[in-house]
Structure formats: structure tokens, C-alpha cells
Design a protein around this nucleic acid. Structure first.
Lengths: 266, 266
DNA sequence: CTTGACTCTCCCCCTACGGGAGCATCTATA
DNA sequence: TATAGATGCTCCCGTAGGGGGAGAGTCAAG
């Protein structure tokens, strides 16, 4: 039997953390004195603790770890780990891009140039109406991939085929919210039936965004500045057209996205 | 002049976030109505907001960003960014190692083997006393690199030379604490003067840990299990000897660290 | 039997916001 | 111009993963 302090030293985890893990039921001491509340651990629990630490290093949340170690379903563990490795690999790529961008920015700083120079070219145009098939729901930007998958599934179920690029329309006229926005994902189709709709926002300002989606807000900022300069006012739901995306290229640096904002003049 | 909602849509940042940034003084609206408290932004502030978002994507905290954008010292910005890129690169490498380990673990799961198998070989030995030159202070594990730099600086200032590997001695006999532990970093020397001390912990159990330091706690857990099995009790400050570290190899997978825990028998 | 080390619970703190209540204000339309 | 509905305000609470510290109780060695 080890006191919490001894156990703490052997597993290199702070006493605070051990008490926290006890509280949330992640790892409870073998014995807790009813009178004094003192926690006593067994050396065997070091193994369990090491597993917890390893899963933590894999970025599982404590709740996830709790689930994973208290079940015997090795398939669940396997599936979760596959998911995490995929996340890590994704992050590996995005970190590499980020480092590249940081080097770029540092060069700019050395040359006394501002990091952020809005170099999006903005134009105004009457948007040529398109016929779209879409799904609309509350979602986060991170769910786009899955939502597009499901969209294409439904598309084929309905016997349709894509006839052009896909779109995201930001229907949310209220607060913009990163985690829970009212978004319609859609794709151009040739058919005209009751499951499709005509997307006809009218006069828009637009710009082309090249590169990964991480800097997409800069396109919106450019549109905002342009509207200010030209006395235009927002007029409806902005939308994005993914002209070159993961379907066309593996390298996010080559993505091309058209960003549109419907406008009106007072 | 843009209301907070309009500004929010143009910079793709939630209203909540904008109010938060106002509150902490990161970006304040150009005009705030004294009567109503309504916030009004200028489109020019989109530029500032984009800079904030970019720095945020570089993992600066909001406080750091506040400092960086409200100073004109481009050297500070440059230095901070260099630091961050270094961090990202470090993370890139550690992520790659992590992915490798996850693949390994997944293989083990598929073969129905437990992920954590304590395969450290533990032995007991009388530690051969060594003469060390060290600095002792409260620090975090993350500060080791810098602290060792400073240690070697002092070493040379005192006209000494390293005569063996370096050590970390965990003096903290109280709570183990990740962020603030009482640690003595030291290096073997040949001289015997009042600035050096004899490190003579006596009987110890020890094990060799191979690989990066991320899994070092497993070595401690192994020592803990061994002590349990052999009826030994902890007896003083545990310490690590870095036999093969970044000085000898570039690949953390090849690191070799001796982990010692002084013991006594009751 | 004392003393110092250890442990307990409880409460507040951190980051970077999100949710929601309750109320005020703005603006487009009738 | 009246009014409804959209938008805005402040205030309070919650999150994850603990850290810091107060105040009180407990354990073990001399």
C-alpha cells in the first residue's frame, strides 16, 4: 500500500492530479480510509496509470480514457486510435504549412513590411444563378468533410450526379459561430426537381482565395474592406464555391475557393 | 461604422469572441456608445483582426498577441516567432514519434497483447559515488534545456570541464509537480572544491530507459513495481543520468537514460 | 508526547470563450 | 409614426485539466 505522495513520486504524477483522477473516477485508490479519507494505492496500479498517461499523450480526453480503460472492447480502442493517428497526421501536414507561413512572415518583418497585406482582388459581378442540391443544418466547420460525404450519398440515392463544383452557403444571418452555424452545403446539378433549388443571390462582390482554408477569413475581410470603399452593404448569405479542393489536388496550397458576398447599394 | 454583428460576419469571428477581446483590451471598437454600450467597429479594424487571427493560429496566447500588436518593436515579434517556429518544429518531430508509437500499439492490440508491458529490467546496485557540479532550483521539465545551458556556462566560468555525463536529481521530497519541482541539474567533474559536491546515494535500484523522455515515467513505474516485489522502500532523491542524449545523437529514439531510485530495506 | 511531514476538503484561479437570462435598443415595414 | 422582430447589452455559469492555498486533521519517528 502506498500513500498518495509515494504513488505520486513513483508514477511522476502530481498529488493534485491523482486526487482529480479519483474524483472523476478515472483511477481510484484500491483503499480509501473511511474515517480519514486517506487514499492508498497498490503498486499494481502503476500499470493502469501508465496506460492512462500513454492515452493522454495520444490526446484522448480524460473522459475518453475512462471509457477506453473500463471497457474490454479492443475494437473500440483500435478504432479510436486509428482516428487519433489520422488527426495527428493531419496536424503534421498543417503544422508544416504553418511553419512555412511563419518563415514567410518573418521574412516580411525583416523587410519592414506588414505581415497582413490584403492582396485579394475583389470584383463585383451579377452571380449567374445555379441549380443546387443541398443539405442545410447546424454544424461546425470541422464537420464539412463528413457532411459533404453524406450530401453526395444522398445525391446518388436520388439518382443525380454532380454537374459542377460544390458550395457552402452561410445561412446564419445571426451571430457567426464557429461551432454551430446554420450552413447549407450544396452541389451543382443538372436536374430541376423539387429536391433542388435555384441559387440566385444577384449582385455580389467576390474574390478568389488560394491556399488552405485556414486563412479563409482573410478573404472575407477583403470583401468587407471593399464594401466599405465602394459604399456597398451586405445583402444576404455569403457563400463559397470550392473550385479546386481535395477532389482535384492533394496539396491544400493549391486549393482555389471563390468567396462571394451578396451586396446592395443604398 | 459596423455593428458588432456586421463586423463579426466580415471577420468570421463570433460576437462573443469580439466582446471578449474588447474586455481584455485586445481589440476595442473605434466607438462605443456611452448611453447604450453598443460597439461600433471600422472596416479598417478588419486588418488588425486578421493579424490577431494569424498570430492566434501561431499559438500565441491572447495576452502575448496584445503585447505584440501594441508594440512597434519588430525585433520582439521576430524573436517570438522564431521561438514559436522552433516549438512547432519540435512538435513536428515529436508527433512523428508519437504516430510511430501509436502504430506499434495498434499492432499490439490486434495481437491481443496489452499495450503497456513493463519491460524495463531493474537491478539493485551500490551507486559508485561521483563528484558533481550542479545548480539547484525550482523548475519545470520543459526548462531543462535552458538550465543545462546555464549550468555549462557556469561550469566553464569556474574553469572546470565536464568529466562525465550529466544528471538530474529530483530533490523534491514533497509533492511531485510537473511545473515547479525542486531539481538539481549537475554534471560530473574531476575537481574537488567547495563548489562541487559528492553525490553518494548508496544502495539504489536502477533501470535503463531507451528512447525519448516522453515515456520516462514508465521507468519510474517499473522501479516502483520492483521495490514492491523486493520489499524495498524509497530512500532519498531519485535521479537520472543522461548517458546518451542530444549531445551524442540527434534521434531521441536512441537516447539512453539511467534512472536510479535510492532504496533501503526495513 | 511532541513535532514535523503528510493528507484531507473546500474554494478560487487559469484560458478562451459558449450558453442563456433578462432587459434595452435599433430598424424595417405597415 | 407605431410596432414587431432582430440585434445589442451586461451578468452569471460552465467547460478541461488541473494549480495554489487555507484551515484542519492524521501519521510516524524520536
Amino acid at each position: 500500500m502506498l500513500s498518495i505522495g509515494e504513488f505520486s513520486k513513483l508514477c511522476r504524477v502530481s498529488v493534485k492530479t491523482l486526487r482529480h483522477y479519483d474524483q472523476i473516477g478515472l483511477i481510484k485508490p484500491i483503499h480509501t480510509d473511511r474515517q480519514t479519507g486517506y487514499r492508498y494505492y497498490e503498486p499494481q496500479q502503476l500499470n493502469e496509470m501508465m496506460l492512462i498517461l500513454r492515452l493522454k499523450s495520444y490526446r484522448f480526453s480524460l473522459q475518453e480514457i475512462k471509457l477506453l480503460i473500463h471497457t474490454d472492447d479492443s475494437n473500440l480502442l483500435l478504432a479510436s486510435m486509428r482516428e487519433k493517428t489520422a488527426e495527428f497526421e493531419e496536424e503534421l501536414a498543417s503544422h508544416a504549412r504553418l511553419i512555412e507561413q511563419m518563415r514567410n512572415d518573418m521574412e516580411k518583418i525583416k523587410r519592414r513590411k506588414p505581415i497582413m497585406e490584403m492582396n485579394h482582388i475583389v470584383t463585383a459581378e451579377e452571380f449567374r444563378a445555379v441549380r443546387l442540391f443541398g443539405v442545410r443544418k447546424m454544424m461546425a466547420i470541422a464537420e464539412f468533410d463528413a457532411a459533404f460525404q453524406s450530401l453526395f450519398g444522398k445525391l446518388f440515392q436520388n439518382g443525380m450526379k454532380p454537374a459542377g463544383p460544390s458550395y457552402a452557403i452561410y445561412r446564419d444571418e445571426e451571430n457567426f459561430n464557429h461551432e454551430n452555424t446554420d450552413i447549407e452545403l450544396a452541389v451543382e446539378v443538372a436536374q430541376t426537381d423539387e429536391k433542388t433549388f435555384l441559387h440566385d443571390p444577384g449582385l455580389c462582390c467576390m474574390t478568389v482565395h488560394r491556399g488552405s482554408y485556414e486563412n479563409l477569413h482573410e478573404a472575407y475581410a477583403s470583401l468587407g474592406m471593399w464594401m466599405q470603399e465602394h459604399g456597398a452593404k451586405p445583402n444576404g448569405a455569403p457563400f463559397e464555391r470550392y473550385r479546386i479542393n481535395c477532389e482535384q489536388t492533394d496539396n491544400p496550397e493549391n486549393y482555389e475557393t471563390d468567396v462571394y458576398y451578396p451586396i446592395r447599394y443604398e
